[in-house]
């Protein structure tokens, strides 16, 4: 039987390297997937430009943050970017409405097939991608300021006397809190408000909702505004926690889609669950359990092997594998998504 200290060490180790990053990453994916799923539920296509629109919103926020920093505005321990966030959201909303007006609306009026929309979103992705790189460049940008940690690893070690440290970054705390607030808001909006109900009605049965006098343009507009806001916030949180780089945002597309589909595309609850499922499977499958095992196992079972199921190079393949398995076993996802 391992000693209590060892068990605590193992627990802290696991929390520090799997649990906390997993919850943070999962929240970021969930917000992204929520945006994808809203667009999908109402407009009925997979928006491939999602990652790059995230990058756009983040870019605007960064530019405003820099400006705020240069005039000396700050939020104390919290990052200044939170002040700049409304500007980022506003710009993203405008961009989305603009794109919808000049790209997607035409195809809606033509009653084009979903795949045409997807293709158009690919074109939008190109353009937004080029635009972002043109304005801010292809390099890494950091825009975090304020207090970096809620708990520092070294301080935790000193405080508890354990071998293993535990660190919680401010951005990790912020991400989880904001994600929670947003999710509650989205559900309240969809269940309780008139616009939200109209959105759900339109999503469930377009013809019937039109008969009952719902203005389709208004529904589409509301959807874009909600999705754009979620997208911008998800992008900024991700950028604050990690770093901003246009190419990274493009690569987020796959886990975000995987999250949305695994949860059941078109289902807000599914998007959130899917986000955490993807994030945790990535962490759990690629984590080497050597140290964890050695804390718990008796002396004669100590190992020098890494005990890693899959090397970290294939991390993103995990989200893909889960996607395939879900499609094979339950094509509609965990929460029975929409399949048109």
């Amino acid at each position: 039987m391992p000693e209590t200290v060892d068990m605590l060490n193992a627990l802290v180790l696991f929390t520090n390297f799997v649990l906390i990053p997993g919850v943070t990453y999962g929240s970021q994916l969930a917000l992204g997937a929520l945006g994808v799923t809203l667009i999908y539920a109402v407009l009925r296509f997979s928006n491939f430009a999602h990652g790059d629109i995230m990058a756009f919103g983040t870019m605007i926020t960064i530019l405003v943050t820099w400006w705020l920093q240069s005039v000396g505005v700050s939020l104390g321990p919290l990052p200044t970017a939170l002040l700049a966030l409304p500007f980022g959201i506003a710009a993203t909303v405008l961009l989305c409405l603009f794109i919808d007006r000049y790209v997607y609306r035409y195809y809606r009026s033509q009653k084009s097939r979903p795949v045409t929309f997807v293709m158009a979103s690919l074109g939008v992705m190109f353009m937004v991608n080029g635009l972002v790189r043109f304005i801010i460049g292809a390099d890494d940008q950091r825009f975090f300021d304020g207090e970096r940690f809620i708990i520092k690893a070294r301080e935790f070690k000193k405080m508890t006397g354990l071998n293993e440290g535990l660190a919680i970054k401010t951005t990790q705390g912020l991400t989880v809190v904001i994600a929670l607030v947003l999710v509650v808001f989205v559900f309240w909006f969809l269940q309780r408000t008139r616009s939200g109900k109209a959105m759900r009605a339109y999503s469930d049965n377009e013809d019937l909702s039109l008969l009952s006098g719902i203005d389709p343009d208004k529904v589409v507009r509301t959807t874009w505004i909600m999705a754009a806001a979620l997208t911008a916030i998800a992008g900024v949180l991700y950028g604050l926690d990690k770093s901003f780089k246009p190419f990274t945002y493009f690569q987020l597309l796959l886990p975000i889609f995987a999250a949305a589909i695994v949860g059941g595309i078109g289902q807000p609850v599914g998007a959130i669950v899917g986000g955490y499922v993807i994030a945790f499977s990535e962490m759990i499958v690629t984590y080497p359990y050597k140290k964890f095992w050695n804390y718990l196992a008796p002396d004669e079972w100590q190992t020098s092997s890494l005990l890693q199921l899959l090397s970290t190079e294939y991390k993103f393949a995990v989200s893909f594998m889960i996607l395939v398995i879900v499609l094979l076993v339950r094509p509609t996802g965990i929460f029975k998504g929409k399949v048109y």
């Binding site: 390297f17 962490m283 984590y287 970290t312």
Partner: peptide, 10 residues
């Protein structure tokens, strides 16, 4: 990549 937590964990 944006996130290296898995790599660092390994």
């Amino acid at each position: 990549k944006g996130d290296y937590s898995s790599e660092v964990a390994a």
